[in-house]
Write a protein that binds this DNA or RNA. Structure first.
Length: 152
DNA sequence: GCCAACGTTGGC
DNA sequence: GCCAACGTTGGC
């Protein structure tokens, strides 16, 4: 069982959107390192923290579950999408995504400032200077710490 | 394969 | 809106 942190700008897709939809495919990741986490390392029943980036405030806002193995990201085939990938074919997709769901919202969001003040979270990849990856692995301890701070 | 130029991310 | 940091592109 592995744990992850997954970022989304709430204006684009928020945890409330996920609670409404019940599940969604995590499309639009266009970084190979983040894609590889989904395509190679994520397993059904892994847990992820839902993080709102570029938000007021930016914060961890809940947990969700990985529902299945990676599949081709449908948006790469859509010429009208901002995520269109001209090099992709149905036989040779370039981008992959996973389905996520079973979301639970934190009673109180854990802001990035609060995360920085928490000693158990000092090693968090996303807190490192210059880190921009939209998907990063978490240790079980880091995951539990975030859940506790969030009141879950 | 190097690297300058450019684009993007995301905290502040 | 600024800008540091990083990723990608493409000329050579």
């Amino acid at each position: 069982m592995a744990y992850w942190l997954m970022k989304s700008e709430p204006g684009n897709y928020s945890i409330d959107d996920l609670l409404r939809d019940k599940s969604t495919d995590w499309t639009g990741v266009r970084n190979h390192q983040a894609k590889n986490f989904m395509a190679k390392d994520m397993k059904p029943k892994d847990f992820a923290i839902f993080y709102h980036s570029n938000a007021e405030p930016s914060a961890a806002v809940g947990v969700m579950e990985i529902l299945g193995i990676a599949k081709p990201d449908r948006t790469q085939f859509d010429a009208k999408s901002q995520y269109f990938e001209p090099k992709a074919t149905r036989d040779k997709p370039v981008w992959f995504c996973v389905d996520v769901g079973r979301a639970r919202k934190f009673k109180s969001p854990v802001s990035i400032a609060a995360m920085r003040e928490t000693s158990q979270l000092r090693g968090l990849e996303m807190l490192k200077r210059g880190s921009r990856l939209s998907i990063t692995p978490l240790s079980a301890k880091e995951f539990e710490t975030l859940c506790q701070l969030g009141g879950l």
